[in-house]
Amino acid sequence: MALLSIRNLSVEFATAAGPFRAVDGVDLTVDQGDVLAIVGESGSGKSVSMLAMMGLLPWTATITADEMSFDGRDIRRLSARERRKVIGRDMAMIFQEPMSSLNPCFTVGFQIKEALRQHLNLDRAQRHARAIELMDLVGIPAPEKRLSAFPHQLSGGMSQRVMIAMALACKPRLLIADEPTTALDVTIQAQILDLLSDLQKETGMALILITHDMGVVAETAQRVQVQYAGQKVEEQPVEGLFATPHHPYTAALLAALPERATTRRLPTIPGVVPGQYDRPAGCLFAPRCAKATEICHSTRAPVQGAELGLARCHHPVTQPEEATQ
């Protein structure tokens, strides 16, 4: 049985100008020990779908799904109180901006111990010992001393390590990392990704990595899910995706990687992700797609079979060389 299973998840935000659909019929499955990357541009609904699962969206969001289960329990049916027993304990999340994700008024130690206090029956001394152990685990030097540090005394990389320590406090079975390295220096990015990878292997937890960096995906993930404008457009194991992307959007994303460029100018994807007012009637990617035909503009794209990476496309790419054009 899958650890996390989501079917046909949609999230709509009530805005002054009417409802805005940020996530549109997304499916997602994660098994114990899986590393899944969710890739997509800004506004493709990557974070929103995960926040919806954690119950962290503002009240303006309406969440609908055919299935949303974690470890066999239907998340939709949990009361707020029951859900709070799951999140932060079995399911934890770290965020994009580590510096602003820690509360400036409390010490690092307080914030880590708070997670322990909320979910585990440990006494003061045990919490203290576990907090030091966690700081050590995420590679923070002199953990005992750092426990009494305030967030403003830490660098971005250190803050993200603290966030990871906090998330791992109760040994979660699923860790969701929402662009954990976007706000960090390149050298620190690599360190944090290595740390996440190592921790995942050590603890055997499942990891969902939300990112828009294909390099991160290649290094860390086993499976990749590509999202565009709130829809899942493709899902493949990493090797397959990099070798033969089936959706033209994935192909275009990969072609835009500097490492793959064959011309002097980097190839780009013209246009922008459709917003609330210019959502196309047919395939959402059609206005920006080089392969789009009549049918793409008029009819919503079907989801292809597993052999074609579940690509949501009328004309899926099938040949590796076709993808690199």
Binding site: G55, L56, P104, A115
Partner: peptide, 21 residues
């Protein structure tokens, strides 16, 4: 603020999130 989301993500009660954090 982001740190309020963090506090909620820990599974803290609304009373603790609002009243403390």
């Amino acid at each position: 603020e982001d740190y309020i989301r963090t506090a909620r993500a820990k599974g803290l009660s609304p009373l603790r999130v609002n009243g403390l954090h």
